Simulated scan of single mutants.
Amino acid sequence: MKFTTVIAAVLSMATFAIAVPVAVPAPAKDVEVRQNHGKCVKSSGGGVMEDVNC
């Protein structure tokens, strides 16, 4: 391969590497708040219903 082809390939790979989104870790307390939405649910007859006695 020619030198310019190698440089072009490296630059294109670098462009994709920069464009990839990176997940930012969320604090554990934020995740806990989102997961505990304060409602309990139960399945009844194939449907989902809120359980107020949980």
Rank of each mutant, 00 (worst) to 15 (best):
S43M: 10
V31N: 04
N53T: 07
V33D: 12
S43C: 05
K42H: 07
G38I: 06
D51F: 06
T5N: 02
V31C: 05
A8F: 00
K39E: 13
G38D: 03
E50L: 11
V22I: 08
V48F: 07
K42M: 04
E50Q: 10
A26K: 14
A28Q: 08
N36R: 14
E32H: 06
G45I: 05
A8R: 02
I7P: 00
G45V: 06
P27A: 05
P21V: 00
E50K: 12
E32G: 01
A28R: 09
A23G: 12
F16W: 14
V48E: 11
V20I: 15
V10I: 14
E50T: 09
H37E: 15
G46V: 06
M13N: 04
M49I: 14
S12V: 13
N53E: 11
Q35K: 04
C54F: 10
G45E: 14
A17H: 02
G38H: 06
G45Y: 08
E32Y: 07
F3I: 12
N36Q: 08
I7Q: 02
V10Y: 05
V22G: 03
K2H: 11
I18H: 07
V20D: 08
V24E: 04
K2P: 15
G45R: 07
P21Q: 06
A23Y: 12
V33T: 13
P21I: 03
D30M: 12
A26M: 15
M13A: 14
T5H: 03
H37C: 05
V22H: 01
T4F: 14
A17V: 02
A8G: 00
A17Q: 09
G47T: 11
P27G: 01
T5C: 03
F3R: 04
K29C: 02
P21M: 02
V52A: 07
C40N: 12
D51H: 13
V52E: 05
P21F: 01
M49K: 15
H37I: 10
D51N: 12
M49P: 01
E32V: 07
G46H: 10
A9Y: 00
